[in-house]
């Protein structure tokens, strides 16, 4: 009983904001721990990673980025759906390359170089996402190479799988 009394914050000086912030931090870490590219990381490492993630919310139909824009960040979907579109100038039509949902990520090439985006990403429903900025990942590689290496490994696995899938599609054509 005493123990529980100790844990309860005082009504006057209960540091309400601190406990709220802690709760928010925990929720955020729980959220990113379920994302495949962060699955190898411990909670301490997840806390470090969470410090370089930006929360973004997009309305249905809102463009996340357009093809040919410079790419600077990778996006991880935490809720909602996103479509990846390719505009064909010759045929004046738009092809849907993929539809992505919770836990998926896209725009990963932006983390590797600053080449323009190869396709357009658009939110289908109201979508919340976490964004990783290239420069922040570069700093993570310098400061926390162990964490960064495991993220990059997961990234490489997913990129490899996507390449294999593309090869299969090309072969079918």
């Amino acid at each position: 009983m005493n123990r529980s009394a100790k844990k309860t914050p005082s009504p006057l000086w209960g540091n309400v904001f601190q406990s709220l912030m802690k709760h928010k931090d925990q929720t955020r870490i729980d959220l990113i721990s379920e994302i495949p590219i962060f699955q190898d990381l411990s909670r301490r490492e997840l806390r470090t990673v969470s410090e370089i993630l930006y929360d973004r919310t997009y309305e249905a139909g809102e463009d996340i980025f357009l093809a040919d824009q410079p790419g600077a960040a990778m996006f991880i979907i935490t809720s909602g759906k996103v479509t990846i579109l390719l505009d064909s100038e010759a045929e004046h039509q738009t092809t849907t390359l993929a539809e992505l949902g919770e836990g998926d990520f896209f725009g990963e090439i932006a983390l590797l170089d600053n080449s323009p985006r190869s396709a357009t990403a658009r939110a289908i429903t109201k979508t919340t996402m976490l964004a990783i900025f290239r420069a922040d990942l570069d700093k993570l590689i310098l400061n926390e190479p162990y964490i960064a290496a495991r993220i990059m490994r997961q990234l490489a696995i997913v990129i490899g799988m996507r390449l294999k899938e593309t090869n299969k599609q090309v072969a079918r054509l």
């Binding site: 930006y54 600077a72 420069a135």
Partner: peptide
């Protein structure tokens, strides 16, 4: 991060690049 949080989506990546 506090500043970037209030940046509209259209300018998000651009603002990050400018800041960097």
């Amino acid at each position: 991060r506090g500043f970037v949080a209030i940046v509209p989506n259209t300018y998000f990546e651009m603002v990050l690049t400018v800041m960097e």
